[in-house]
Structure formats: C-alpha cells, structure tokens
Design a protein around this nucleic acid. Structure first.
Lengths: 226, 226
DNA sequence: TCCATGTTTCGACTATTGTCGAAGTATGAA
DNA sequence: TTCATACTTCGACAATAGTCGAAACATGGA
C-alpha cells in the first residue's frame, strides 16, 4: 500500500505531545511567538525552535517575522479542520486528557476555533441562522441570503470590507464536541469579534475558552435561540 | 494548553509508516487478516501484531475473530473521514509519496473509500445526483428525494433492506483529491456494489484503485455525466 | 557604542519504540 | 494424535528523535 499522499508524515508531525499542544494553542487563530508557544507546550525555547522548524517544513504553520519576534500561526483553515477532526476521534474514543478539569465543560460550551465561535453556542448560532434563512447551504458550501446580508449589516458587520479579502466569506466547520457544523470563514470571524466588542463575551488569555457575560448570554439567546 | 481531547495520542498512532499503511489498506472498507496487513505494510507478522494491538487499544480498528483468522477493519466511518482529511492536508502541502507512480493518477480518477466510490467519478456521481434532484442536502446531511427513491429502485437497490440497518443511508464524505463531497453511507456502499455486479468496474485486489470497464464507463457517463 | 531580549544552532544524553528471531499458544484438518 | 497454519509473546538490538545546556546570532533600545 504505497498509494496516495504521505499521511504518516503529517500525522507524526501532529503526534508529538509538545507539537500537538502548540497546534492546539494556535487553534485560537491568533499568531503566537516562539517563546509563547514554548511556554504553552511546557518546553524550553530551544526545543520549541526545533519543533517549529519541523512544523514549518511540514507546511502546518506559517511564519511572519516582525523585528526580533517571530509570529507563528496555523497555515490555513484546512489545518484547523483536520485538527478538529482528530479531536473528534479522540473524544469519541474516550481518549480524553488524563485530567478533565472544569475547563473541559467550558470548552464544550463555547470556545474559539481558529478565530470563530465553536462549541454549543457556535452550533446554536449556525442552526439558528439556517432556520431563519439568513444562511443557505449549497452543495458543500454555505452562503448568505439577501435577508442574511441585511441582518449582518444591522448587526454591525462591514460586508464590503470582508468581501474585499480573498478569504471565503462563509465556511461550515465541523465541531468535535457537538458533531455538527458551526460558522467559519471571514464572516464567522467578524461575528465573534463583533460580539466581543459588544461586550457579550470575554476571551480568556492563552486559552480557547470563551466566557459569555450575563448581558451577552441574554442578548445571544434572544437572537439565536431558535 | 492542556485543554480538549488528547489529540497527540491518536495522531502518533497514525504517524507510524507501518500503521499508516495498514490503515490505508483498510480504507477499502474490507476487513483484512493480520498477515495480510503485515504484507501490505511490508513488515513481519510479529511486528504487525504489535502495531495492531496498539491500533485496537486506540480504538481506530475493530476486531472480529473467526477461527484461526483475526479480521481487522476500521472501527467506523469517522476514522475513514479523518484519514481522508489527513490525506487532503498532505496532498495540499505537496507531501506526496516520494515516487508518484501511475497508480496515483488512477487513484484520483476512481478509488474505494471505505466501501463507497471516491475520486473524480465519485464526485461526478454525487454532483449529478444533486443537480438531478435525486439527492438533497439538508443542514449537514444529505437525503434521498422521492424521485431519488424511484431512481434507486430502478437501479436495482433494495432500499428497504438498507433502511433496516442502523447505519445512515446517505452521508457526504469529503474527497482528498477533488476537495468536494462524494456519496457515502449504506446507499453509497450499495451503489458501488451494484455497479460491480453490473460489470461496470473491477476492484483490484489489495488496492483502492477502481478500474472502469469500457462498457461501464459509457453507462456511467450516460447516467451521471451531468 | 553597549546591553538586553528573542531566537536559533550545536552537541551530547536519554528514552522511546519500531524491528525481527525464536519460541509459545490456538485453531483446524488429516 | 499429529501436523500445519495463524497469530502472539518475549527478549534483545538499533535507530530515531525529543530534551536541555551552552553558546552564537539577530534585533531594538539606550
């Protein structure tokens, strides 16, 4: 069986605990420096440097040098999707962390997935926008309906600016905890950022956990509960 | 970053070349014996036994003992989906096999993906069934329309028997080479098997490659080219 | 210029683990 | 029972690769 792409190479790349932790930290979508990633993984900067070079050569991360800092980020949404897929397998097989702390429950509720909202609330948002015909699923993709465009505008999102970028506006992204889709793409990112500036939620530093404020929870439910 | 499921564990499991080859061989959906898998991976039976135990403990494969043979198979469609996702990453990053033989082109054209048709022809089939309104995509899933039921019946597929099983009838499955969906689920399996018994195609032993016969190619194009 | 900080390279150590030979267990057939 | 086949366990070897200390390199600020 020497057919197809070399799957073992990238799987081995993800398979080291230190590198997996780094990739997990990058799932927030933010770019992090080498030392920050070393701290996240619990290793020294030298070791982290070696790992990051391998991830870079493997094409899993992208590098943006800025002065004496070197910012690493996931190289694309497809990497994030594959990582989520692996998390789904691990979770489904009962291979959770040795210690499942209180953060685990918080993660299932709401978390950042490559800069957009994931977890129960992310799925809730997606489902609500589908049933309200703000989003429509076509073939493999999702798209904004005319009604959805008006909604986004009223929600305070500059669609024209988003469309100017190359990145796709809407993307479905599979959720490892809920096993349903949530909204990714530049619109997904913009909506999370908008909710943050509205004071609906707090993003915990150095973690994927998202905590909704009381006000935010009420406002979210009012709009997206059905 | 100690959040979420333990992704490194399963990634490391897939990350060994011998195990990756075994999993690749199991992507046909057929159950294989330990020695067959050893041969596929190019290792001795002793080594294969050790690997298979790890895959079993990791929950990636399922074991069905039968006499003195032990048949291994992928534990579920989610494993196959994750493997395809990894193949997509590897292919997209240019990390193909060192030697891309002629089988690679054949794989892109038509192959078995966990017992259903994948590759260009698989995507073709899926797209055709969508545009002809035989299938309809709803939310995350796909379903058969009334017109689709009549079509399946005329094609010689026993829908009632398929529905009696627990497995979902239709499932979209992302294709690593075409980056589009093709049809999985028990209907996908049944259609591939029906095409085989119609003499449209030959499944090569011990490989994922599917070769269409001249007659089968013509018949397939006549029905699913648009 | 000098110093502090972020990052990488080098070298050596260690642990892990994939590998196979040899022997042992289990199943089925004669 | 005896033999053959399928598979596993055990033990030992070797190679890979993750780890860190020490030192070098690069950048920015004073």
């Amino acid at each position: 069986m020497k057919d197809g792409p070399d799957i073992a190479r990238i799987a081995a790349l993800i398979g080291d605990p230190a590198r997996a932790n780094m990739l997990g930290a990058l799932m927030t979508g933010k770019a992090l420096t080498a030392t920050e990633l070393a701290h996240e993984a619990g290793i020294t900067p030298q070791t982290a440097s070696s790992h990051l070079r391998k991830l870079l050569e493997g094409g899993l991360v992208r590098l943006r040098g800025q002065g004496r800092h070197r910012y690493y980020a996931l190289s694309g949404a497809d990497v994030a999707a594959t990582l989520e897929s692996l998390m789904g397998l691990a979770a489904g097989r009962g291979h959770l962390r040795t210690r499942t702390g209180p953060r685990d429950a918080a993660l299932r509720k709401a978390r950042v997935c490559y800069n957009h909202l994931a977890g129960e609330r992310g799925v809730m948002l997606y489902r609500s926008m589908i049933t309200k015909k703000l989003l429509i699923e076509t073939d493999d993709d999702v798209g904004l309906t005319p009604m959805g465009e008006r909604f986004a505008d009223a929600f305070g999102i500059d669609l024209a600016a988003l469309r100017a970028k190359r990145a796709p506006l809407c993307r479905p992204c599979l959720d490892w905890s809920a096993r349903e889709h949530h909204l990714a793409g530049s619109l997904g990112r913009a909506m999370l950022s908008r909710m943050e500036s509205l004071g609906w939620l707090d993003r915990q530093p150095e973690s994927r956990v998202i905590r909704f404020t009381a006000k935010g929870e009420a406002a979210f439910d009012a709009r997206f509960s059905a």
